[in-house]
């Protein structure tokens, strides 16, 4: 798998109301990589994700997935949203099965894969529950299972834990890290939380706002055998502080 984002710009509106949201974004993502885009609100990080998902078209530049130009949404790019991530009228299992049945897969296959992916996210017991009967963390795990069930080449996560309480957030980060280690998925995470990005991603791009652009890239080389320990370790805290300072100075220059 090879995702190539080349010199992508995006503006919304026309004429005098035209607003440049993204300027000259370029990066590559390859199989098994976990990448994060970090920025404050207005940095256009969600727009980058929507462009890759094919929900928007770039104003300039191009996005290729395995050499093919991205023109529209497709199941090779699974997506998890922060809000309204599940269909409230479907059970957890039906939500996971949704993409498979949209694709017209056979009943036996759907049942088997649904059970498998619910098990992967540790929610085999919750199969028959409606989203409103699940906690926020469980809902996001179902959403991840649903995105994985159609076997996307890359998983796009748009602030997936942004609406969760701090403690649940931390356990979800550990869950996602384990999932990445065991399944070898390729992921692109959008977050405003530097700690989250550093914990999970091998490559972190820092984005500046107005217009959104990548101003700094870090290759994170930390021992991730124990995330809980990593969170409070010295090198981690130093790196976090350094990046937080960069983000602050970006915002400060705008005040």
């Amino acid at each position: 798998m090879h995702l190539q984002v080349s010199n992508v710009s995006k503006s919304f509106g026309e004429g005098r109301d035209c607003k440049l949201v993204l300027q000259d974004i370029s990066f590559e993502l390859v199989s098994g990589q976990f990448m994060a885009l970090v920025g404050s609100s207005g940095s256009g990080k969600s727009t980058v994700m929507r462009l890759i998902a094919g929900l928007e078209r770039p104003s300039a530049g191009s996005i290729h997935l395995d050499g093919e130009l991205v023109r529209r949404p497709g199941s090779d790019r699974g997506m998890v949203f922060q809000k309204y991530s599940l269909y409230p009228w479907l059970t957890a299992a039906q939500n996971v099965a949704f993409g498979l049945s949209l694709q017209g897969r056979g009943k036996a296959e759907i049942r088997e894969r649904t059970a498998y992916f619910l098990d992967v996210v540790g929610l085999a017991d919750a199969a028959r529950l409606l989203p409103r009967e699940l906690s926020g963390g469980m809902q996001q795990r179902v959403a991840i299972a649903r995105a994985l069930a159609t076997e996307p080449k890359v998983l796009l996560l748009d602030e997936p834990f942004g609406a969760l309480d701090l403690q649940i957030r931390e356990s979800m980060q550990e869950f996602l890290h384990d999932l990445w280690k065991t399944t070898g998925l390729t992921a692109l995470l959008i977050t405003h939380d530097i700690e989250e990005a550093l914990l999970l991603a091998g490559t972190v791009h820092i984005m500046a706002p107005r217009p959104g652009r990548i101003v700094h890239t870090v290759d994170v080389r930390l021992d991730r055998s124990d995330l809980r320990h990593l969170r409070v370790s010295q090198p981690f805290l130093e790196l976090r502080e350094e990046l937080a300072g960069r983000l602050r100075s970006l915002d400060g220059s705008l005040l």
């Binding site: 094919g54 497709g74 997506m79 309204y84 269909y87 993409g99 649903r146 796009l156």
Partner: peptide, 14 residues
């Protein structure tokens, strides 16, 4: 209808 619900379906191949 929340756009996320429609967009999720689009990214699932709908």
């Amino acid at each position: 209808v929340p756009s996320e619900l429609v967009e999720t379906a689009l990214t699932l191949g709908g």
